[in-house]
Design a protein around this nucleic acid. Structure first.
Length: 284
DNA sequence: ATCGGATGTGGAA
DNA sequence: TCCACCTCCGATG
């Protein structure tokens, strides 16, 4: 599930459930065991995320840096009567033992691409490598624009480049380009600043929604299933989308068949009619 | 029951 | 460009 909204949601959940509590830290699988032992029994101060990177903070400016990759999971179990024995490859387990009337909680990290212990400098280096994150209020979109306006690379690739813009994944990319009628292969340096600003402001709203709901919903009210008399999507991902993984199906807006193509190893999805590569000035 | 692809990234070839 | 990571789930049989 990991685009930026998932990580921000997770950071909030970890802070709520474990923040300020003394925690047991372990690595049943073993790959994080040495670092876990250094943190075991200390206070978990809180968690935050930057793009798709999660940082769990411990005293002494120590940070557990987690990246879920494509299929990592870090489910948080609140208020459990019993902490069950770990099942499968648990890289990191956090346990908050019961305190007084407060029940126990635990979280198991599995399948992550990164789980490492960093110093403050290490954590800052990860943040500095990242572009602005539309979910963070202090983000400076001009940093992303300066990269995009100078690049001949396709806007579809630039949006997924985490050094340009942090937190956008394949779904937000496909959907925000559709919403702005931009062809994914259009070179970054052909965008006008107003187009970029609109794209950014839309991502700010869409991704904040994602943090609130835990899903990616990008379809405007007038195109929702109820409004158009279409069956809601019975997809496990849940959200209503315009083009993501809808290749071969009719566009919700114009009925044209949604296309797909691989760009830099990832599937692009777009409507060739709504997102024409060349468009007359009158239509723009 | 088994297979392959996926909301991602980095490193080797 | 391909592979590894090593989970989850839908499609297929």
């Amino acid at each position: 599930m990991p685009e930026g909204h998932t990580l921000h949601r997770l950071a909030g959940e970890l802070t709520t459930v474990f923040g300020g509590r003394t925690v047991r830290v372990g690595s049943p699988q073993g790959r994080f065991a040495e670092s876990a032992a250094l943190l075991d029994g200390s206070e978990l101060l809180g968690a935050e995320s930057w793009g798709k990177h999660l940082f769990v903070e411990f005293p002494g400016e120590r940070y557990v840096h987690v990246h879920l990759g494509l299929y990592g999971k870090f489910p948080v179990h609140h208020e459990v009567a019993e902490v069950p024995p770990p099942v499968g490859q648990v890289r990191l387990r956090l346990v908050a033992p019961p305190v007084g009337v407060r029940p126990a909680a635990y979280a198991d990290l599995r399948g992550a691409t990164t789980c490492e212990l960093l110093t403050r400098a290490g954590r800052d280096a990860v943040v500095e490598r990242s572009g602005p994150d539309p979910i963070r209020p202090e983000a400076d979109p001009l940093r992303a624009w300066e990269r995009i306006r100078r690049s001949r690379a396709p806007i579809g690739g630039l949006l997924m480049d985490q050094t340009v813009l942090a937190g956008v994944g394949n779904i937000y990319r496909a959907e925000v380009l559709f919403r702005h009628r931009l062809h994914p292969l259009r070179p970054g340096n052909t965008l006008r600043v107003g187009q970029f600003t609109a794209l950014w402001e839309d991502l700010v709203v869409l991704m904040a929604d994602g943090v609130r709901t835990g899903r990616i919903d990008t379809v405007r009210p007038e195109h929702l299933p109820e409004a158009m008399g279409r069956e809601p999507r019975a997809d496990k991902h849940g959200g209503e989308v315009y083009v993501y993984r809808r290749d071969g199906q009719p566009c919700h807006v114009c009925g044209t068949t949604v296309r797909t193509e691989v760009l830099q190893g990832r599937n692009l999805f777009w409507c060739p009619q709504c997102q024409r590569r060349f468009r007359s000035r009158a239509v723009q």
